[in-house]
Structures are given as structure tokens and as C-alpha cells.
Amino acid sequence: MTLFKKNPFGHTIFLKLWLIRIAGLLTHRRFKGFNDLQIHGSEILKELPETNVLFVSNHQTYFADVAAMLHVFNASLSGRDDSIKNVGYLWRPKLNIYFVAAKETMKSGLLPKILAYAGSISIERTWREKGQEVNKQVKMSDVSNITKALDDGWVITFPQGTTKPWKPIRRGTAHIIKKNRPIVVPIVIDGFRRSFDKKGIRIKKRGILQTFDIKPPLEIDYENDSVNDIVEKLEYAIEQHPSFLKVIPSKELLSEEELNKQREWRY
């Protein structure tokens, strides 16, 4: 690796390497110390190709979700089974992992800008801006950047586009799948919104059981599955299909929503 080699987005690999190492060291105890992250399915990661892999996940915090994924991915690739014990895996991390994030979120402070350099594909939301509902045209440059990232490595996306549960899957994710034909790996996380504030920066409560379930790649017929078919498969895969609500008592949902409001970090 040359000192000033750059990735397809013009980021210096050497600088990105050290940002990941430092951020990883600073965040490790959030998942292995303050809280207990239980991982299932890490063996799936070891069988994946180097490029054109799309991870789809439910979303609970802005930044902690991605931080946990970087820990789990790199620990698994270094030979650990369902564990992030011993941060030695950070010394040689996989450097072609990217994550899709809202551009306004990644410009909201110094830390988000650092995280953006470490692997963000920043896109403009077409449905929400500065807390207001909008209806904007998809920017083709955003779509092409996701394609560029898939061509170079792995991409993490949160197809609901929000940390609120049970929101619909954005159809743009299905269009990207149809266009690029990636291997689609679902991930289901839990416990993060109970551990951290909405941004995933401030620790709200310790001793929380966090779960991280990696599922086998989805079976997708890229020729015949419609966008709606793919959306439905994604909803079931990340356990956000409306039918899941039928088995969760409404009282429990209301209680959880009230707790989430209390846990929001107000500054």
C-alpha cells in the first residue's frame, strides 16, 4: 500500500486506515464493556466476495449502528467467530467498506465529517430535509456513487432511511439492487436505541444486551422480481414488515416510543 494511494472517492487510504483504527479503539468498549454485543452469523461474512455486496439493516441510531458493523465485519474477517474480543483486528481492517448516509447528517459536526471520510456515501434525502417532509428528485450522482462503492467493495444501507421502527422501505434501495445485482445480506440489530442517544454518540444506559444477527444472502431473481417484490423481501428480511406488528402488543409499542423520546439527547 503506497502512502498516498486513494480510493475511488479520492480519499487517501493511509488516512482512512488510521481514522478507522482510532475510531475503532474509541468505540470498542461501547459494545464490549459498557454493553454486551451478541453476534450471530459471522461465518456468513467469511464466504462473501470482495466486492458488490450490499448489507441491508434496520436502523436504530445515526452512528453506533455503523460503528458496530465495522467492528463485527473486521473481527469476523480476521478469524473471530461471533466475537469482537481483542481489538487486534483493527490493525488491518477492510478498507473498502462504505455506508449510505444522509448528506445533512454527515455535515452536522466534526465527528460526522470524520466518519464521512472513513467511508460514507453521502446522499441527499428525497423525502425529508431539515426536519420537514419534502418530495425531491433523486440525484443521479448519488445513485452512481453507490454503484461506484459496490464496484469497489461492500456497502451498508438502511433502506428505511430513518431510525424510527416500522417505517416503509425506500424503493430506491430496490432499484439499486435491480441495477447492480449485488449479493444482498440482511442484518437485524437490537438494543442500540436503548444503549445510546438517537445519534449513537452519548451512552444513555449501560449493561444493555445488544444483538447483531447476520442472515444468509437473500434469494433475488434480478430478471423477474419487481421492485415491489424486492421491497417486500427486504421488509421481511430486516423484520420490519407490517405483519410483525401483529405479534407485538400495542401497549408495548407505545411504552417503547415513550422511552425513546426520553432517551433522545437534547443539546
Rank of each mutant, 00 (worst) to 15 (best):
Leu150Tyr: 05
Gln160Cys: 09
Ile114Thr: 04
Val138Phe: 02
Gln160Glu: 13
Phe158Met: 02
Lys107Thr: 13
Ser83Val: 13
Ser141Phe: 08
Pro112Met: 02
Leu90Pro: 03
Arg128Asp: 07
Ser76Lys: 10
Ser141Trp: 04
Ile39Trp: 05
Asp142Gly: 05
Pro93Ala: 04
Val100Lys: 00
Arg171His: 08
Tyr98Ile: 00
Leu90Asn: 13
Asn135Lys: 14
Pro168Cys: 09
Ala101Trp: 00
Ile169Pro: 08
Phe73Glu: 09
Val155Ala: 00
Ala118Ile: 11
Tyr117Val: 10
Gly79Ser: 12
Ile114Asn: 02
Val134Glu: 04
Thr157Gln: 01
Ser78His: 14
Phe34Glu: 10
Leu70Asp: 06
Lys167Phe: 02
Thr147His: 08
Val56Leu: 03
Gly109Thr: 06
Gly161Ile: 04
Glu47Thr: 14
Ala101Gln: 04
Glu133Trp: 10
Ala102Thr: 13
Phe73Trp: 12
Leu115Ser: 09
Ala116Asn: 14
Leu150Asn: 07
Glu104Tyr: 01
Leu48Ile: 02
Leu48Thr: 05
His40Ser: 15
Gly41Thr: 08
Lys113Cys: 06
Ala116Gly: 15
Tyr89Pro: 07
Glu133Met: 14
Glu50Asp: 14
Ser83Gly: 11
Asp82Tyr: 08
Met106Phe: 06
Trp166Met: 09
Arg171Glu: 15
Phe158Trp: 07
Arg170Tyr: 12
Trp166Glu: 15
Thr163Gly: 01
Ser122Thr: 11
Gly109Phe: 00
Lys136Thr: 04
Trp166Ala: 14
Asn135Thr: 08
His71Asp: 09
Asp82Gly: 12
Ile97Gln: 05
Lys113Tyr: 07
Gly79Ile: 11
Thr147Ile: 13
Ala116Leu: 10
Gly88Asp: 14
Thr157Met: 12
Ala64Trp: 03
Thr162Phe: 11
Pro49Phe: 06
Leu54Val: 00
Pro168Ile: 07
Val155Lys: 00
Phe73Arg: 13
Arg125Ala: 05
Lys167Val: 08
Val155Glu: 00
Ser144Asp: 11
Leu95Asn: 11
Gly109Val: 07
Phe34Gly: 03
Lys139Met: 10
Val72Cys: 07
Ser76Thr: 12
Thr51His: 10
Ile121His: 04
Asp142Leu: 04
Val72Glu: 07
Val87Asp: 06
Glu50Asn: 05
Val87Ile: 15
Gln160Ala: 07
Lys94Val: 06
Val56Ser: 06
Ala102Gln: 12
Leu150Phe: 02
Thr51Lys: 15
Asn86Arg: 14
Ile39Arg: 01
Glu124Asp: 13
Lys94Tyr: 04
Ile169Tyr: 03
Thr147Gly: 09
Lys130Arg: 13
Met106Tyr: 04
Lys107Met: 11
Asp142Asn: 05
Trp91Asn: 15
Arg80Cys: 08
Leu70Ala: 06
Phe73Leu: 15
Gln38Phe: 09
Ala75Leu: 10
Met140His: 11
Glu50Cys: 05
Gln160Asn: 01
Lys46Trp: 05
Leu115Lys: 05
Ser42Phe: 01
Ser78Asn: 14
Gln137Thr: 14
Lys148Tyr: 03
Asn35Ser: 04
Ala68Cys: 08
Thr163His: 00
Asn135Val: 04
Ser78Cys: 11
Asn52Met: 07
Thr126Ala: 13
Tyr62Met: 09
His71Trp: 12
Ser76Arg: 09
